[in-house]
Amino acid sequence: MESYWNGRPVYDKGNALRAAPLVVNYDLDELGIGENWFVSGVRDGFRMVDRGIVPGAGWCRALSAPECAWPPGADLCVVVNWYPDASFIGTFSNSPKKAKALFGKSHAEVEAHWATRLKAVAEALRSLGYIVERAGRRPRPTQDANASLLVYRMGPGAEPPVRPVDAWRWVPSPRVYRWSEKSPLEVLQRRMDDAGFRYQAGKGVVVRDIDTVLWPPLSSFCAQLDWWPDKVSSSEELYDKLDQILSAVKTGGYQVRVQERPMKIGAQHFSALVFQTVEPISPINFATIAGKAE
């Protein structure tokens, strides 16, 4: 069976959104816990590929993570989604007495499968030098379709951040908002609109939900803020405008975080993490990074 991969991908931090998942997905396949892409044939000169998922163990896929959400000092970061084996797909019942997997597995069997396989996946990735965290909201095996792991690698000389034991204790449970209510995400978007940053004609600010695995420790709310600028001609102008946007955010009691790597002036959009915590986290000093933009 010919592997889809033609060798280990080269990691380019300048294109981390694409390169980081490629590298980790390659490692997942090498470990036998990924989607295990292989060449199934050739048609009209093109390789046909398919997945070779190992039965009984579930499978993993690495997805990109915005740099603004990376742990401080990280050189590479992705979200690894783990999916249970098809025979352990759980029901969406909230009652343990009624919980029964679609293929006859009990509530306890489903939870044991999740716990065992997630531990095995984490240990396998750690064997390659990755740091693996069970961050964010704890998964519910009988209700969730998958579990997310925060997987990252520190830069040279950098130490992994120390996380509080109860770092994600304040992540709220999912809920549905009635039409008369405003979700925290809608409240933040309204604040940006009222501050003059409404998204129109491809320019402006949009806030959106982000996987809780990427939330900073001690967070009770978190969102990703994406800004499409009109025109930016210098690094100073870039950070001045970004400071204006994030100042409007901070006056609402939010904290903000941007990527550590200097932002590129020619980028189509820029992202920041907006969050609220039960304890304050060190603020960003834009004066120290404005001169570092590319």
Score class of each variant (00 low, 15 high):
167 A>H: 06
162 V>H: 11
187 V>E: 15
205 V>G: 07
243 D>P: 00
177 Y>N: 01
86 A>E: 15
96 P>I: 03
193 D>T: 10
230 D>M: 03
9 P>T: 05
50 D>W: 09
172 P>D: 02
31 L>C: 08
289 I>D: 02
64 S>A: 13
186 E>V: 08
198 R>A: 15
234 S>H: 07
14 G>I: 01
120 A>M: 13
79 V>K: 11
88 F>G: 00
15 N>T: 07
217 P>E: 14
271 S>Y: 04
129 G>D: 10
102 L>D: 04
19 A>E: 09
134 R>M: 03
276 Q>I: 09
110 V>D: 14
154 M>F: 02
230 D>K: 05
209 D>W: 00
274 V>E: 13
138 R>N: 06
91 T>N: 10
112 A>P: 02
202 G>K: 01
7 G>L: 01
74 A>L: 08
210 I>S: 08
191 R>W: 08
152 Y>I: 05
189 Q>F: 10
136 G>W: 02
54 V>H: 08
42 V>P: 04
122 A>V: 00
282 S>G: 01
15 N>G: 10
84 P>D: 04
161 P>V: 05
49 V>E: 12
206 V>Y: 07
228 W>Q: 01
225 L>A: 08
169 R>F: 04
140 R>F: 00
3 S>F: 10
180 S>G: 04
23 V>R: 08
20 A>F: 03
133 E>V: 10
124 A>E: 13
290 A>F: 06
132 V>T: 08
112 A>L: 13
44 D>I: 09
24 V>E: 09
244 Q>N: 13
142 T>V: 03
231 K>T: 14
233 S>Y: 04
134 R>K: 05
80 V>S: 09
216 P>I: 04
5 W>C: 03
102 L>G: 00
141 P>F: 02
70 W>Q: 12
223 A>V: 05
246 L>T: 06
118 L>E: 15
264 K>Q: 12
79 V>I: 13
136 G>I: 05
147 A>Q: 07
197 F>R: 02
169 R>S: 14
78 V>P: 02
233 S>L: 12
282 S>I: 08
184 P>N: 10
203 K>W: 03
280 P>F: 09
89 I>Y: 03
50 D>A: 13
75 D>K: 12
278 V>D: 12
218 L>R: 10
252 G>H: 10
212 T>S: 14
188 L>T: 05
228 W>L: 05
224 Q>M: 13
97 K>H: 09
43 R>D: 09
106 S>T: 15
198 R>T: 12
158 A>F: 15
125 L>T: 05
119 K>W: 00
47 R>Y: 03
3 S>D: 14
285 N>E: 14
153 R>T: 00
278 V>Q: 12
95 S>V: 06
207 V>H: 04
188 L>F: 02
104 G>M: 06
246 L>V: 05
170 W>Y: 15
190 R>I: 04
176 V>W: 11
162 V>R: 13
112 A>N: 15
113 H>R: 06
228 W>V: 11
110 V>L: 12
49 V>A: 09
88 F>S: 02
108 A>Y: 09
215 W>V: 10
